[in-house]
Simulated assay, not measured.
Amino acid sequence: MFGNVDWAVVLATFVSPIVAVGITLWAQARDNRNRNRMELFSNMMRSRRNPLSIEFVGSLNLVPVHFHADRLVIARYADLMAVFGDSAWRSQDQQAIQQLNEKADLAIAYLLSAMSVVLKVPIEQLAILRGGYAPKGWADEEQLNQELRSSIREVLAGKRFLPVLAFPAPPQPAPSADEDESKPGSENLRRSIPDQ
């Protein structure tokens, strides 16, 4: 009986630290995963009013990496990708583009809501859809940048020309006869012109 207790103590002495390290590593990995997911979610929430921003697009592309095991999140992600991949974005019809923007906003709200449930910070879809703030100046600046890029593209393609403003040179006063004679070398000039 005494020999069995000694082996149990020896076994516990060696196994306990290994188990403790394993549990610690597992807990750290879980914390890192949760932290990464929360950071991704926070970035997307922060920039949801500007889905063309680098921050939003970069975070969106990481959703399948960090939420791969969450079926509802992946399904909502696929729905959003289908909206973004719609060929109607290339249309010249402004009403079709407006409808796609509304569908994209709704799909973003569904995705963020699904992510919030997984992260145990549930936020209403309506709060996601209607909430947030993006200054109108950002939209105006983006519109101006698009117009500028389009104009430059047309100039480079030869479809548009740059207007060149020609400013006439200011008129020079005609030299008077007295000034001509007073200039050095004017005698030589007069001599070289034959009399008529």
Score class of each variant (00 low, 15 high):
Ile74Val: 10
Val10Arg: 12
Leu119Glu: 03
Gly132Pro: 00
Phe84Lys: 09
Pro170Val: 06
Arg49Asn: 11
Ile152Gln: 07
Val73Ser: 05
Tyr110Cys: 12
Pro51Asn: 04
Lys159Tyr: 09
Glu147Leu: 12
Ser42Gly: 04
Arg153Trp: 04
Gln125Arg: 10
Phe167Ile: 15
Ser186Thr: 06
Trp89Lys: 03
Tyr110Arg: 06
Leu162Phe: 10
Asn36Gln: 10
Leu60Met: 08
Tyr133Val: 05
Glu187Asp: 14
Gly22Tyr: 09
His66Cys: 00
Asn36Ser: 11
Arg49Met: 14
Glu154Pro: 01
Ala127Gly: 03
Leu100Glu: 01
Gly158Phe: 05
Glu55Lys: 11
Leu72Gly: 01
Arg49Asp: 07
Met1His: 10
Leu52Met: 12
Val10Phe: 15
Pro175Val: 09
Leu129Met: 11
Ala96Cys: 02
Asn101Val: 07
Trp7Gln: 14
Gly3Ala: 14
Asn145Glu: 15
Ala107Tyr: 01
Arg160Val: 09
Glu39Val: 11
Ser91Gly: 10
Phe161Tyr: 11
Lys120Tyr: 05
Leu106Ser: 10
Ala96Pro: 02
Phe84Trp: 11
Asp79Pro: 00
Asp86Phe: 04
Gly137Arg: 14
Ala8Ile: 14
Gly132Phe: 06
Arg71Met: 15
Thr24Pro: 01
Arg37Trp: 08
Asn34Ala: 12
Ser192Asn: 10
Ser150Lys: 06
Val63Tyr: 00
Leu126Lys: 14
Pro171Thr: 07
Glu181Ser: 11
Ala12Leu: 15
Arg30Cys: 05
Ala12Asn: 08
Val83Ala: 09
Arg71Cys: 13
Ser116Met: 04
